[in-house]
Nucleic acid binder design. Sequence first.
RNA 1: GCCGCGAUGGCGGAAUGGCAGACGCAAGCGACUCAAAAUCGCUCGAGGCAACUCAUGUGGGUUCAAGUCCCACUCGCGGCACCA
Length: 819
Amino acid sequence: MPSYDFRKVEKKWQDRWEESGIFRSDDDASRKKFYALDMFPYPSGDGLHVGHPESYTATDIISRKRRMEGWNVLHPMGFDAFGLPAENHAIKKGIHPRISTERNTDNFRRQLKSIGFSYDWSREISTCDPAYYRWTQWLFLFLYRHGLAYRAKAPVNWCDSCQTVLANEQVEDGICERCRNPVRQKDLEQWFFRVTEYADRLLDDLEGLDWPDRIKNAQSNWIGRSEGAEIVFRGRASAESSLGDRDFDVRVFTTRPDTLFGVTYLVVSPENPLVLGVCPPERRPEVMAYMEAARKKSELQRVSLEQDKTGVPLGVYVTHPMTGEPVPVWVADYVVATYGTGAVMGVPAHDDRDFAFAEKYGLPVVAVIAPPDGQGNPENGGKGAGSALSAAHTGPGVLVNSGDFNGMDSVEAQTKIVVALEDAGAGRCRVQYHLRDWLVSRQRYWGAPIPIVYCDECGEVPVPESDLPVLLPDDVDFRPTGESPLARSADFHRVKCPKCGKPARRESDTMDTFVDSSWYFLRYCSPNFGSAPFDSREVAYWCPVDLYVGGAEHAVLHLMYARFLTKALNDHGLVGFGEPFLKLRNQGLIMGEDGQKMSKSRGNVINPDEVIERYGADTLRLYEMFMGDFEAAKPWDTKGITGCRRFLDRVWLETHDLVHHGKENTDHGLTASLHRTVRKVSGDIESFKFNTAIAALMSLLNDWQGAGAADREFVETFIKLLSPFAPHLAEEMWELLGHQHSILESPWPSYDEKMCEDSEVEIGVQVNGKVRGRFAAPTDLSEDGLKSAALDSVRPYLEGKEVVKVIVIRGRVVSIVVK
RNA sequence: GCCGCGAUGGCGGAAUGGCAGACGCAAGCGACUCAAAAUCGCUCGAGGCAACUCAUGUGGGUUCAAGUCCCACUCGCGGCACCA
């Protein structure tokens, strides 16, 4: 009997699959479809790491099962090929990003093919291909046309050492993740996508999605919806201020309108335009110095100085909308300029930050919410400026010191006070989001150019669709100097205005790579379509994606952006659905053998090529799925792989044994075990419990060997169940069993519920909750039969006792209660 | 600080409220071998000669029965965070 030469077998089947085109999928409206999508990789120079095959194997298993179940399956793969690493590599090594990206992509493709994934490679896409980014640009113009893309001056993260703008995700605690230098804020004209327009729907629609809770939760946190009120405090500027003797408003956002009577000051952020307008001359030097200091603070300082609040009085007063009392206005950088109105009301008695600020600057503390009985000192409330307070009471309670609202429950008072403010024309309900618009421009080379032209006559002019793509020039000096490399390419930069024909300038920024990946799943449906980003007929058939699998690091950004774009396309009739990904699953991180995160510097990285070379692709696939809970982090264990390898070897040997010796199975227990395993494996694959599906197959093999014989039907069913996990070996065994066609063309096995039961089961017997015995009983034994057999089996424990109660759980346990 | 997730043998991990530790790894013993590797068989939570007792992060509770449900904690992981 030949031993299992996995190298030969795996090569043989990969070649056959490629030749036969068995994984190609065509639009066929008469068949039910299944779209299984992997998050496409960034083709880094390091090649695949073992985390990639983990999620890819999972989708591959489901795709293969679906094919066998008769579904029309779309299972594509491509490359998220634009991005900063290729550009940095180019700067360091002088190799053009196009060259290194191509080389890396070839390597990734080779590696992916060597694992035997059932991708339709005829649909491969790459985001740096002009045939692709042409449509990324088209989508930019689509958003622009509908007012969802706009240009504005904005502070961006700037790294002096890298000489570039950084994306938010590249800034960690105020430090550039690449060079560890502090990041600075810089004001630049930037392009934005109006994601905030969709804040409510992005939040509300999460509910209907079959996504992991933590992802939904992360998105929900990111959107950060809070309900509260906008309250107007009116004031009058002095004649000497730059505003002159005029009325002005300070609008604040609060989630606690019930604490309105406890306001003892207001705070506006240093960036608030009102500050200089109303500031009286004598206060200007100090206020301006404070503003300057705040502006100079790096992100790093703002974060590290978290608790140490500073501020200066602005020298103006506004009127409390309920009490009519004067309220001083302060400037402090603990107020975030870009959130809410950039101004807050200070309620020291009921907010920790305000309390700290008031203590530091000697501002009065007025308690207006008396804690419920037993919490704190209720007397505080009644005494007005409660100097007795040692901390803010931030919880609910009963209103005191609040005029007509005294005695009211604080929760109830929230709405009541807003109503009163509305009547007085001094406030309204307001919903505030943490979500900001998406800054999409990047001052980088290796990305899709933004298709806009600036003309002195016509202003901002979109590039006509017929002129797309705006090609990324190859011959560019992409060394960093602080402006986009494209601005230095005269050929690229100097253009004629598409509107008036006069000399104009082309936008030199490129798009964030998250724009590329926000729509790639649509492109797979018609990867070569030439007249639009996608063929709407194909998209109508294949989309939305039925199953999407990838890393949890994309919990917020990528998934949010793809959802945003889908909703925008949906609103304007380009797609017929509002959510792109119906079911999402994340693979857990694979750690190194030392339990640490895999990293080059730790030297604990496992290279899948080496695992395949030594154990084979089927073993790699099997092991990655067997390691543990798909969604949980788990350490790699090279020794553990041998168990999977041994299992496949034994399958090979036993199958040959059947073929060469032709055995009969007369063992009913083995047949029952087979049916149970079909049920178990089928169910486990659906619920992403691949580890227990494999364990069940291992158990079944143990039973098979234990029985000493199995018939052809048993073996064929076994091989089918194994085929999504170890497709090469399965095809080889399938052929050995005399089949001409791929195992993918045979139906997924079914089981008979009646056949799943063994003729005999073991029953445990508990006496007062403790297991005291067990006995074997025929499966169909009556309840009374079980009861008396159970009582017999634990007789010594019942002597001299009275049996109070007997509970029979069929097939499992009998519980006896005695006194 | 807020939100979410988790904690089970030497290790990875199994368990619709129903016999805790499936399956695999490692370890020990044995078979085969001149020997080793590979392979196969047996043992394998802790304590105890045994009957038994103790065991699913901690402390309570519900139940005939709790890893699973409830309450209060501890620790770890992840998201958000001067967001008013």
